[in-house]
């Protein structure tokens, strides 16, 4: 691979992984709330979480730029006090990806937690377990395949993220130029078709790898679901 290609390739993986790390714990908590709790405004929370699936990604990136850019109150606060600049850094790219892939993280976790038999929770309660202990020892282990499926789906989504990334963190080689952005750059600027095809193939390779893992994890996930229904 050329320096241009490998830089984009590794950056994509790095950003994809940080992005999934960001949303692992929030994804589990929100999945749990949506699956197990009933409260006023649940439908609102549910729709809010699914927003990234329907808002154009570039819109989300631009909103992030307004909220977290250096001219914004929040962005300025982070920069002045912690010297953190999210816009135009790879960490910001991971943030944009994590928002875009959040619904995909929550969904399988929620489905699996909803499918769990609530009677098992009662049994644990009768044995003196607190709600927190039930979450840790019953809910979480039974939702494990869902968490894994969510992680891989979110990672795959992050690998392909384009719109929110280019709007929020720009197209900076070596910092935020992931595979989709590099591919776009080539399509916009290059007359060398081979170059474009090469990078396209690299993108496809990474996506297929991520999807292969996703399907194998999903199979496990479905098996677990079947076993629980028995």
């Amino acid at each position: 691979m050329t320096a241009f290609e490998s830089s984009a390739f590794f950056l994509s993986i790095k950003i994809g992984m940080l992005s999934t790390c960001f949303i692992l714990i929030p994804g589990i908590i929100i999945g749990w709330i949506l699956a197990k709790k009933n409260f006023f405004g649940k439908i609102l929370l549910d729709s809010f979480i699914h927003l990234p699936l329907v808002i154009p990604p570039i819109g989300i990136g631009y909103i992030l730029l307004i909220i977290l850019g250096k001219n914004s109150y929040l962005g300025n606060f982070l920069y002045e006090n912690f010297n953190i600049s999210l816009s135009f850094s790879w960490i910001g790219a991971a943030l944009a990806c994590s928002i875009m892939s959040f619904p995909l993280m929550v969904r399988p976790i929620r489905v699996l937690m909803e499918a769990q038999d609530k009677k098992i929770d009662d049994a644990a309660r009768s044995l003196g377990a607190s709600e927190f202990r039930i979450f840790l020892t019953i809910t979480l282990p039974l939702a494990y395949p869902g968490i894994l499926a969510g992680l891989v789906l979110a990672f795959a989504r992050s690998i392909g993220e384009f719109g929110a990334t280019i709007a929020f963190v720009g197209n900076i080689p070596g910092e935020t130029q992931t595979l989709p952005l590099a591919l776009w750059t080539l399509i916009e600027t290059s007359n060398n078709q081979n170059e474009i095809i090469r990078l396209g193939l690299i993108s496809i390779f990474l996506s297929i790898l991520a999807l292969l893992i996703a399907t194998s994890v999903e199979k496990k996930f479905l098996d677990r679901l079947k076993n629980d229904k028995k």
């Binding site: 009677k119 098992i120 049994a123 009768s126 044995l127 003196g128 377990a129 019953i138």
Partner: peptide
Amino acid sequence: TPIRQRNIGYAFQDERLFSHMNVIKNLTFK
């Protein structure tokens, strides 16, 4: 009083065992 504070031993008709744990983990849950 909430269930967990009633300190009742309850053997359910439908067992309600923790399917992801082994036998000894089920027995020693409390």
